[in-house]
Amino acid sequence: MNFEIAKEPINIQAVIDKVVQRNAGAITTFIGTVRELTKGKKTLYLIYEAYESMAVKKLEQIGDEIKERWPGAEVAITHRVGRLDITDVAVVIAVSTPHRADAYEANRHAIERIKEIVPIWKKEHWEDGEEWIGDQLEKVAYPTGKPEEKDLYE
């Protein structure tokens, strides 16, 4: 189970341990955390929601993309759902590869793809309200127009 949706706090070391391999020269770990200020507005907490069964499949797809593009890579991703407070860990991505440059690039690919194709949403709660955030660029909520088809499949 290298790709998971977690309802409890993520054990970061457990995610890293999944990609340990004898041919690896590097493991990169990305830890996404809940930020307090976005464009000057203070977040109190977030609620993450997932279409869990499909989200796991899409995380697996990202893993397949990485293995195809960076041969020898191993990938593990866990994304948290539920209520998260400021500084809590929302996502952990671990990638191991024979050489370090690939480990950085492949890990970056994973987080960017999560923001494009994995059915997970966050609801921001502020002092003066709440809103489902619908734009991965964090500029506007719910732009018109859906993601381009080309974004869905590499």
């Binding site: 996404g32 993450y48 997932a50 279409y51 499909m54 989200a55 994304h79 929302a90 996502v91 987080i111 999560i114 923001k115 494009e116 194709i117 994995v118 059915p119 997970i120 949403w121 966050k122 489902w132 955030i133 619908g134 734009d135 991965q136 719910y142 732009p143 859906k146 993601p147």
Partner: peptide, 10 residues
């Protein structure tokens, strides 16, 4: 059938 609003994970 599931309707998927623009996603915001990560």
């Amino acid at each position: 059938v599931a309707f998927i609003p623009p996603v915001s994970g990560g």
